[in-house]
Design a protein around this nucleic acid. Structure first.
Lengths: 221, 221
DNA sequence: AATTAAATTTAGATATGTCTACTATTAAAA
DNA sequence: TTTTAATAGTAGACATATCTAAATTTAATT
């Protein structure tokens, strides 16, 4: 629909758009079930809302395959993701929540007035990334850092530099794993990756989880 | 309805309950038109929602006269008002908004998770009142301070100690008037009160506005 | 390739919250 | 006190957002 203003997009619709945005960051597109899991609603509901989003020109859809954002949809989503990530920074840095809690609570900040978010942004000294290492839209894109955990060597140690997309399943499995944690890749197959955390704990990450984790080599200087 | 949990109350319903709460603080009860103005919806909508609130046991109603909160309704409202007033403090003290902006924006904080609000409360050093001088529910009630502007002497100077209810009309008319401002009561009739602000500006306040403003004598020590 | 399982979509029901247009009641004015 | 104006309420329509149950399509397994 022509002339649609961002403010005309309902808040729940914004939730769907940002979820699709975050899924696209990781998988390139969003499938009904994934959206359903992220938003904790039934697939049938997602399907119905996607129809609505398509009518509004916010997403493209290939039936039974998945959706991607249109330019307009991305525009709305980036606004909201910016708010989310600024809020996460505030929650982690100023209020002292861990990054999992910060993510959960940040959701509720996504629909605060722009003026408030931008004031918080200033007070937090204009961060460029959130506590998960993802860029805060609105600043220069910057180069992508790190390599996916699904593409590194077995047996070596790495630093976690980013948890892309901030999807619920990875975030839950990686609870307590902060940015800049050291991990060792114990085993890597096409289906899963086993990592050893700083605590010595071994975690087996399915590929869909492992590919959201970006790491860098440990510099020994 | 028995067993109703606070979390079961929709956010819009919470808005109605807090509006009624704030109107009760000032006028003792809430009338359809007042609620309508505060929430910026049509009276017909208010009427319909009030039916709903009554069905849920959250308000008492005398048809064509007005509504008051039940114990349960008050409980929900106080929770939300607490959040609102903590948020106002944060917005004014930490982010530097004036008290009118703080009020407007605080609305959007009312539905943030309890954990976040309470963490902000701690970081703000557990304030007992908001920037409008109203008590933050949850702490001890404390004695009411000040006297209504509709009950003071003409010609004398007073300090503003509270703007009760934080209703939209008084807040708009008194924009820029912060707590602890000095004002002089120029003229007082049963219908309006004329006050002189610090700037020398004269403002005529209708009684429904004036009675939300509480003042104290200026101590000369 | 056929069958089974998983994922997706439709259809139809329900709840919340809003509106306009009209009716009823109360308060104010003549 | 009668008329008028203001306020409040009802009826019915509509949009968003959710669900369950059933049908369809795609993917996985035998």
């Amino acid at each position: 629909m022509v002339g649609l203003k961002v403010s005309d997009v309902g808040i729940r619709v914004e939730d769907y758009l940002t979820t699709i945005y975050r899924l696209q960051e990781v998988y390139g597109h969003a499938k009904t079930t994934n959206i359903s899991r992220e938003l904790n609603v039934r697939p049938a509901t997602v399907s119905k809302v996607i129809n609505y989003l398509k009518r509004k020109g916010l997403v493209d859809r290939v039936k039974y395959r998945g959706v991607t954002l249109t330019g307009k949809g991305r525009e709305v989503a980036e606004e909201v993701v910016r708010r989310h990530r600024i809020a996460e920074t505030f929650l982690a840095v100023f209020l002292g929540f861990d990054i999992y809690e910060a993510h959960l609570y940040a959701h509720h900040f996504e629909h605060l007035p722009k003026e408030v978010i931008e004031r918080i942004y200033e007070r937090m000294s204009r961060p460029t990334t959130c506590p998960h290492g993802n860029y805060i839209p609105g600043v220069m894109a910057g180069a992508t850092v790190g390599v996916k955990l699904t593409e590194v060597d077995e047996g070596r140690q790495y630093v976690v530099v980013r948890i892309a997309g901030e999807l619920i399943k990875p975030l839950k499995m990686l609870r307590g794993l902060a940015l800049n944690s050291l991990i060792r890749v114990v085993e890597r197959t096409p289906f899963y990756t086993v990592v050893e955390l700083g605590s010595g704990e071994l975690v087996e990450l399915p590929s869909d989880v492992a590919e959201t984790v970006y790491v860098s080599n440990v510099r020994s200087d």
